[in-house]
C-alpha cells in the first residue's frame, strides 16, 4: 500500500480515559448551551407576529434534537477521548463525530497550562493544554481529574525544563 515499506501499522488508542465525571459535566454544559439556543428560538416564535404555524413543530424537533445531543454526545465523547504521556511523546485522541489524534514529542513542548472553569471546578475536573512552537500544534486533554491534571502539569514542566534549544 505504501512505498515507505515496512509493515502496515495503525495508531492504537492512547491508554488512559478521562475522568468519568466528564460525562455529567459534558451533559450539563451541552444542556445549558442548547437551552439558551432553544429559549432564543422560542422567544422569537412568540414575539415575532405572523409566524406560520408549522414553526412550532420545528421548535419541537429542535428540542428533541437538543435532548438527544445532551444524552448521546457525552457518552460517545467519553469513549473516544483518550490520552497518554510517555517519556518521548504526548498522544491524545478526541472528537465525537469526527476523530482527531495528536502526537507531539516532549522535546518540542514549550508551555504546559491547566484550565479550570467554574463548572469544571464543581465537578473536580481540569483541562490541560500543551503547546509547541507551532500554532497548529497545541494538544488539549479535556476533563481530566483535577489531581491527575496537577500531577501531569508538574511532571511535564519538569521534563520540558530539561530540554534545550528554542524547539522550533
Amino acid at each position: 500500500m505504501s512505498e515507505l515499506g515496512g509493515t502496515t501499522a495503525l495508531l492504537r488508542a492512547p491508554l488512559n480515559q478521562v475522568s468519568p465525571r466528564a460525562v455529567p459535566y459534558w451533559t450539563i454544559s451541552a444542556l445549558v448551551g442548547d437551552e439558551v439556543l432553544l429559549a432564543a428560538c422560542v422567544a422569537a416564535r412568540l414575539l415575532v407576529p405572523g409566524v406560520p404555524g408549522w414553526t412550532t413543530w420545528l421548535l419541537v424537533v429542535l428540542a428533541v434534537l437538543a435532548v438527544v445531543h445532551a444524552v448521546v454526545m457525552p457518552r460517545i465523547r467519553y469513549d473516544v477521548h483518550r490520552w497518554e504521556v510517555t517519556p518521548i511523546a504526548v498522544h491524545t485522541r478526541s472528537g465525537w463525530i469526527g476523530r482527531e489524534t495528536r502526537i507531539a514529542p516532549i522535546s518540542r513542548v514549550q508551555t504546559v497550562d491547566s484550565r479550570q472553569g467554574a463548572l469544571m471546578r464543581a465537578f473536580g475536573l481540569a483541562s490541560l493544554t500543551v503547546t509547541t512552537a507551532s500554532a497548529a500544534g497545541p494538544i488539549t486533554i479535556d476533563c481530566l481529574d483535577a489531581d491527575t491534571a496537577r500531577e501531569l502539569v508538574a511532571q511535564l514542566t519538569a521534563v520540558t525544563a530539561t530540554s534545550e534549544g528554542d524547539a522550533t
Partner: peptide
C-alpha cells in the same frame, strides 16, 4: 510513533 503503533488488524485507533 513507535510506542503507539500496532499492526493493522489489531488497530484500535483510527
Amino acid at each position: 510513533l513507535t510506542p503507539f503503533l500496532v499492526p493493522t488488524d489489531q488497530a484500535l485507533g483510527l
